[in-house]
């Protein structure tokens, strides 16, 4: 009996909750970081920059969705709300009052967090499908409101006024996409760092307990409602940052696009494809799907827009059927297998 306990303790010690990544993985990580930093000078075409900016943008957006779905287990189908709020906050403040988008970014974050509380408090009590459908309907309602709201340009949307005097103050770069690239890279890196920290915090562990067994977590004294709303706020704030950057990047706000269910669905598809609940899954999903859509647009011309969606749809059905834990789990499994062998 004694021996049994001791060996169990040994086994428990050997199995780290958060294993240090193996050396080769750290080397790959360092190489990837260096490549990301050097990317705009290695690939100099405007198209290469654009694709990478979109990948980083969507990696951040998908991660924001992942915070809610992957950590607290709630499936939101209305995340475009926060994306649109971020873009509208900075643009309305700049176009109407001349306020720098940096301040607009903060306002957007605050507004999105407030919206997350307003939406989350009544709906996060709903479980499963009911929450998903509620967010789908709220997202669609917000879009209808913004399409009718004259003060923010109704259906024709808003333009960001062109300002050439101080690019960094007004967050507009008209000569090159490179500054946008580094801004997006910094935003995405900060977002991933935040989530990485979050996952290892007590808060993160409570969230995962809550996701895995709602009732057990509640019975252990975790304030379920408060945790879920807080997660929703963090996620909304991240999405809002992406929205502001997107608005400054395209300089045109179209409520049809910004609040579209398509954006809510895209972030879901990316996260699930890469692996929801994992740190790198959303980035992997974005890195697979964005080039797919950009290249299919080039190869197939005007009709390409729907071809990429057909491929997305089929891909996601296949992933859900054969590997619901996402593509990343293929690699993870391989690493784990190698470890157990050695």
């Amino acid at each position: 009996m004694q021996g049994g306990t001791a060996s169990m303790l040994e086994a428990a010690k050997a199995e780290h909750l958060w294993p240090r990544p193996p050396r080769w993985a750290m080397a790959i990580g360092a190489a990837a970081a260096a490549l990301l930093l050097a990317y705009p000078f290695v690939f100099t075409s405007s198209f290469a920059h654009h694709t990478m900016i979109l990948i980083l943008l969507y990696a951040l957006m998908a991660q924001s969705w992942n915070v809610v779905a992957g950590f607290s287990g709630q499936i939101s189908l209305g995340h475009a709300i926060f994306f649109g709020l971020g873009a509208y906050s900075s643009t309305v403040l700049f176009a109407k009052y001349g306020v720098t988008p940096w301040a607009g970014l903060l306002v957007g974050v605050l507004l999105s967090a407030a919206a997350a509380v307003a939406i989350g408090v009544p709906t996060l009590r709903l479980r499963g499908h009911y929450f998903a459908i509620a967010t789908l309907l709220i997202g669609s309602s917000v879009q209808i409101v913004f399409q009718r709201w004259e003060w923010v340009g109704a259906a024709s949307g808003l333009y960001v006024p062109i300002e050439r005097t101080s690019p960094w103050l007004y967050l507009q770069f008209h000569r090159s996409k490179v500054p946008y690239y580094y801004l997006m890279l910094a935003a995405a890196a900060l977002g991933y760092l935040l989530v990485w920290k979050l996952r290892r915090s007590r808060f993160g562990f409570r969230l995962q307990a809550l996701r895995d067994d709602h009732d057990a977590a509640a019975s252990l004294g975790i304030a379920v409602a408060r945790h879920k709303v807080l997660t929703f706020m963090i996620s909304g704030a991240m999405m809002s940052v992406a929205g502001t950057f997107y608005g400054q990047y395209v300089l045109v706000l179209d409520p049809e696009r910004l609040f579209s269910a398509e954006i809510s669905i895209l972030v879901l598809l990316m996260t699930v494809l890469g692996g929801s609940g994992t740190l790198w899954g959303p980035a992997l999903g974005a890195a697979v799907l964005i080039p797919l859509s950009e290249y299919s647009r080039i190869w197939l011309g005007g009709t390409g827009r729907t071809v990429d969606l057909i491929i997305y749809g089929v891909l996601i059905v296949l992933v859900c059927m054969w590997r619901p834990s996402g593509l990343l789990s293929v690699f993870e499994e391989r690493i784990r297998r190698r470890r157990t062998v050695s």
Binding site: I75, L268, L269, V272, L309, V314, I316, V317, V319, C320
Partner: peptide, 17 residues
């Protein structure tokens, strides 16, 4: 459940497109 939701959602996206 996430896979169930995404599975039918993916089907919807593919059919519409």
């Amino acid at each position: 459940m996430l896979a169930q939701v995404c599975g039918t959602f993916g089907l919807a996206v593919a059919l519409r497109a």
